[in-house]
């Protein structure tokens, strides 16, 4: 079953538009949402959770339509946005206790074990928490009821490296348990390389690429070769900084690029893999260049 189904979601502002976005995440799917600043990632999340009204389209979570009159679907949601409000005068414990009333599936022992793994002191008042500690509390809130859908908008902001690693482990365990789908927006693809199966690229408010990670990592390669004269426009390839006679390109279909080079009489081609992070950077750069060409 699709745990998240977005059909034609749209939001218009003056000078900026999101969508229409169509997306489907199945149970057990972990997808990374990647996009430049201002690409619409946060707007998309806000439209999904309903803190911003959407102008069009439908969203269903675990088979339930999400609209204003039906809010029980939110019991199936674990969301981390740019800010989660808490009762500042109360301790972490008390904040969790208040929240737990709203979620029948809330597991107190799970909440406490997550807090412990994140090294979060729940006996302190929330107003004494740092940004990172507040984020940790949001993580506890987002996972304690084992929701069907996890929407995490740059959750690792302000987290120390150890906590970031713990967060990824926690998410891995949720997905491994197989009852949840995850959409994780981040600027650091390397962070979710082990976790995310799918990479979804958002550019200027639209999904420009939605691919299985390995479909990209199998095709994108770094090619370097030796040629006395510069080889212009190699198919599928973007030239990198190079000094003749040594040339380097990044290709989004290395077999096609290599075949072209071989036709040109170049046989000694060194081919190496790219990390998902490197590929994402290339795709985002191409997106940005594409936008520049248009304008």
């Amino acid at each position: 079953m699709a745990y998240l189904e977005i059909n034609g979601l749209a939001k218009h502002y003056t000078g900026y538009a999101l969508g229409p976005v169509n997306l489907q995440l199945d149970c057990g799917c972990a997808a990374a949402l990647i996009g430049a600043n201002g690409a619409g990632k946060s707007t998309l999340f806000r439209c999904l959770v309903g803190s911003v009204r959407r102008d069009g389209g439908t969203v269903s979570v675990a088979g339930q339509q999400t609209d204003e009159q039906h809010v029980l679907w939110r019991q199936q949601l674990g969301y981390i946005g740019d800010f989660t409000p808490f009762f500042n005068d109360w301790t972490g414990h008390k904040n969790l206790r208040i929240r737990s009333q709203f979620y029948p599936a809330w597991q107190s022992h799970k909440a406490e074990s997550i807090a412990e793994r994140l090294q979060l002191d729940l006996n302190k008042k929330v107003k004494t928490y740092s940004t990172g500690q507040r984020t940790k509390l949001s993580i506890v809130c987002a996972l304690a009821h084992s929701p069907a859908l996890l929407l995490f908008d740059e959750p690792s902001n302000g987290l120390d490296p150890v906590a970031r690693q713990t967060l990824l482990e926690l998410l891995f365990e949720e997905i491994e348990a197989g009852e949840t789908a995850l959409l994780y927006a981040t600027h650091h693809v390397s962070e979710v390389e082990g976790l995310a199966d799918r990479l979804i690229f958002l550019n200027n408010g639209t999904v420009t690429l939605d691919a299985i990670k390995d479909d990209l990592t199998e095709k994108w390669r770094h090619l370097s070769f030796r040629s006395e004269q510069a080889i212009g426009s190699i198919p599928y390839a973007t030239p990198q900084k190079s000094e003749l006679p040594y040339q380097q390109v990044i290709s989004e279909d290395y077999e096609a690029s290599a075949a072209f080079l071989q036709q040109q009489g170049i046989h000694d081609i060194e081919i190496s893999r790219l990390s998902a992070e490197q590929i994402a950077v290339e795709i985002l750069r191409n997106n940005a260049n594409g936008a520049n060409h248009v304008s």
């Binding site: 891995f172 997905i175 491994e176 390389e193 082990g194 976790l195 199966d197 299985i212 990670k213 390995d214 479909d215 990592t217 990390s275 998902a276």
Partner: peptide, 16 residues
């Protein structure tokens, strides 16, 4: 190792 566990360690997709 579990499919997802190995995928995570090797940073490859589950389907692979």
């Amino acid at each position: 190792p579990s499919i997802r566990g190995l995928a995570k360690d090797l940073k490859v997709s589950v389907i692979t």
